[in-house]
Amino acid sequence: MLELRLVQGSLLKKVLESIKELVNDANFDCSSTGFSLQAMDSSHVALVALLLRSEGFEHYRCDRNLSMGMNLNNMAKMLKCAGNDDIITIKADDGSDTVTFMFESPTQDKISDFEMKLMDIDSEHLGIPEAEYDAIVRMPSAEFARICKDLSSIGDTVVISVTKEGVKFSTKGDIGAANIVCRQNTTVDKPDDATVIEMKEPVSLQFALRYTNFFTKATPLSSTVTISLSNELPVVVEYKIAEMGYVRFYLAPKIEE
């Protein structure tokens, strides 16, 4: 038996909106730790890792570890039917081939349940070791989204370079080239508006903008984004989910042959 009650249901709606374009089908894993997911896109270039910790739910009952295969587009369709202020409860019985999403309006005057069919998914699970990164950039998530969108109108790839000068995002395309430099800026009114760069080694890596633009669908989840880079390693783009966990995106670099 599984029963997870999330008072801030809008978080789950935002999570689905942030990952449904990158991944079609995924197994949601439920354990005493929390509700989690790890899935790669079909070309194995990008990976999403989600964790919603059990403590973040108002009620969390998971009698035994359970993996539920879901089509993320269908799940997103159902969650779109929940109001932004609704409480969402995820329910499943042991051995059942369905999951139920229950939506309660804040005043309890409207209660809906949506039952969705589960699916068997052969998912590959990658072991991602904890790593020390050469450079970690924290910046406003809206700024990162704006940069990825702007650069994708010029080129297909972005070179992200971190030096002591700041973090530079560069692209080239048929019509020309663009460079955007963000300097460390901690003298802002709100901490979330700061750009903070921790650098051990200068880093320069190239990525497909198509994927970074997918990642920025998670912008509504967090006002800041953390980009962790090491030379010759996949980048990690992390959006923290208020006191509950995170959505992390991993993206393999492009390499000059």
């Binding site: 194995h44 990976l47 990658l126 790839t157 497909a208 996949p234 393999a252 670099p253 492009k254």
Partner: peptide, 14 residues
């Protein structure tokens, strides 16, 4: 020539 790497090059498939 720019090649797109895949994640399985960096991480073990469990």
């Amino acid at each position: 020539n720019v090649e797109q790497n895949v994640l399985t090059l960096y991480y073990d498939n469990l």
